[in-house]
Amino acid sequence: MVERRATLGILAHAVMILGVVIVAFPIYLAFVASTHTSQEIVQAPMPLLPGGHFWENYVAALTGHGGGAGSNAPVGRMMWISLVTALTIAIGKIAVSLLSAFALVYFRFPMRGVFFWAIFVTLMLPVEVRILPTYKVISDLSMLNSYAGLTIPLIASATATFLFRQFFLTVPEELVEAARMDGAGPMRFFKDILVPLSKTSIAALFVIQFIYGWNQYLWPLLAATSEDMYPVVVGIKRMIAGGDSGNEWNIVMATAIMAMIPPAIVVIFMQRWFVKGLVDTEK
């Protein structure tokens, strides 16, 4: 800070508090709603302080015993699907990208440039622009309603490949030479030197990609056609199909809170890597 101005300091805090309150309000409200009965919520205005039905709402949501007019599938199963797909996508992306970046940086081979550009161009082909044909590929390969269908098409990653490529380019040449002198082959060098050196990049990417995987919506909407393969993000949308009064909003909000918790935990507790990951992947 350049100078001390009491009024400005107070104003700064006031703006920040206001900002935080507005940003946090939807989440707070969801939490409050998840602790009341659905009747209490439906009478406007709903209470603004937490009620005493926390436990039963969450249990009802997890086991699928809500009585809403929309979908009542058990959230426990959905959370599991989300977790498996998010982890597979994050780890898969990192593994696949590490290998490709390694090949692109440390090997000279024909068509290297072609592969580089092929991976680069995928940046310009998000799922949203090729919805129907991609769906057709998945159904032709009979990968609908499977973990493979939910994850594999999302595992290719141009950003991760470039991030690792940038990083590998900064690894000093001497390390490669030293490893070769000691008789290490390429895979040995990759496993014992390159991967350990990339630890921070891996952690940063993991945070970003885990959230990416967890929050996928359009893809699972296409690739999962039966309710028992819905991730929670898709499932919650199905739950609100009953309309304002038909929905069990307490159960829906309990589901929303549960759907937020895993990515929120990752972001908050891995904040340092998260910020690094955001900044790095956008270079």
Binding site: L29, A33, N215, A259, P263, A264
Partner: peptide, 21 residues
């Protein structure tokens, strides 16, 4: 910390929260 939490919220969940409000 509080300001970065919305990043973790899935767009579909964010939609549901705002719809509810």
């Amino acid at each position: 910390t509080l300001l970065i939490v919305p990043y973790a919220v899935a767009p579909a969940v964010a939609g549901v929260l705002w719809l509810f409000m």
